[in-house]
Design a protein around this nucleic acid. Sequence first.
DNA 1: GGTTAGATTGACCAATCAGTATATCGTGCG
DNA 2: CGCACGATATACTGATTGGTCAATCTAACC
Lengths: 194, 194
Amino acid sequence: MASSKREQLIDTAVELFYRDGFHATGIDKILSNSGVSRMTLYNHFRSKDELILAALHRMDEQWRNWFMRSVEHQADTPYDRLLAIFDVLGEWFRQKNFSGCLFVKASAEFSKPGHPIHAAAAEHNRLVYEYVRGLAELAGAKNPAELARQIRTLMEGALIIACVSTRVKAAEEAKDMVKILMQNAFETETLTAA
Amino acid sequence: MASSKREQLIDTAVELFYRDGFHATGIDKILSNSGVSRMTLYNHFRSKDELILAALHRMDEQWRNWFMRSVEHQADTPYDRLLAIFDVLGEWFRQKNFSGCLFVKASAEFSKPGHPIHAAAAEHNRLVYEYVRGLAELAGAKNPAELARQIRTLMEGALIIACVSTRVKAAEEAKDMVKILMQNAFETETLTAA
DNA sequence: GGTTAGATTGACCAATCAGTATATCGTGCG
DNA sequence: CGCACGATATACTGATTGGTCAATCTAACC
C-alpha cells in the first residue's frame, strides 16, 4: 500500500507538472488531486525537487518506451524506422492532451545547467539520441553519430514549432527534411534501395 | 520620469524572467531589483501577466533587431544571409548569459495555446519566420515559404539542443544541414552560383 | 501662494508557498 | 490480548504570493 501511494503521487505529479508547469503546481494541488496526505508525500520524497526528479524519471521511461515501441511497430528496417520517427512524432503532436515536452519545460524552468532537474532533462535527451544513433548504425549510415544529431535537431525543431505555433504538420515537414538529409548520409547503393 | 520608471521595470522584468522564469520571479524581486515601488508598478501594469506581456514585447523587438542586424552585417547576399543565420545563432549561444529563448520559456510555462502570453510567443515565432521567408524570396528559392519553415525548424532544433544539452556546436551542425537543404531549394544555376 | 491632480509610499490583505511537529491510527508480533 | 512501530492525518509554521488602500508627497497651474 505504501508503494502504491508513491506511484499515485508520481502519476498525479507528472500530470500536473505537464499541464501547469513545475513552479505553478503547488504541493497542495498534488496532494488533493492524488488524495494522499502531506506527511505521506514527505515520507517518500525529501522535497518538491525530489518529487520533480521522480516525475521526470517516470516520464522518461514512459515516453521513451512508448516512442520506441511505436517506431518499431511502424516500420521494419532500421532505415525506415529513422523515417518513421517523424510519423510517431506526428502522432504525439496530435494526442488529445499534447502540451509539449516535459523535459523542455523542465530545462526552461530550471535553466541553470548544473541544476539536477536540468541535468535530468539533458540525460533524457541523451538517451533519445542514443536510440536514434543505434538505428542509424544498424541502417548503415556513413556517420551514424552525425545523422543521429541531425535527426535529433529536426525532432526538437518540429516539437517547438508544433507546440509554440500549434502546427502539428511540423512533423511531416521535418520528415521531408530528413529524407533529403538521409540521401547524403548513406552510400549510393543504399540510397537506390530506399 | 514616469516613463523612465516604466522602462526600468520592463528592463529588470526581462532580465529576471529570462534568468529565473516567470512563475519563479515574484513581483517583490522585480520591485527591489528595479528600485521602484509597488503602486508605481500597478499604475503602469494592471497585473503581473501584463508586465510579462510588456517584457515579451520588449524582448521581441530587441532580439529580432539584434538578430537581423547581425545577419545583415555577416553576409551581403540574401542567399548567404540564409546561411549566416546559423553563424549568428552560434554567437547567441556563446553569449555570456545565454540561457535559452525567452519565448520558448514563455510557451513552456503558459502552454495553453489560447493564453495571451502563449500567443505572444507564437507571434514572435511568426515574425522571425516572416523575416526568413523574406530572405528566401529575395534569394530566389523555388518555394520560399517551405524553405523558411525548414530553416525555422533547424533554428529551433539547434536552440533546444544548445540549451538543454549545453551543446553550442549545434549551431554549426544546423548550418551543415541547411547547406544540404538549400541545394534542393534552389534551381541548378543558383546552386552553381553559390 | 494656494489648490488640486497625479505619482508615490508603506502598511496591509487573504491566499498560498514548501515544509514540520505532533497526535492518532492500523497492523503485525509476542 | 497488549504492546509497539511505522504510516497517516491534522494543525501549524514563517515566508512569500499577487494585489489593494488610504495617506502622503510633488509639481504644475490659476
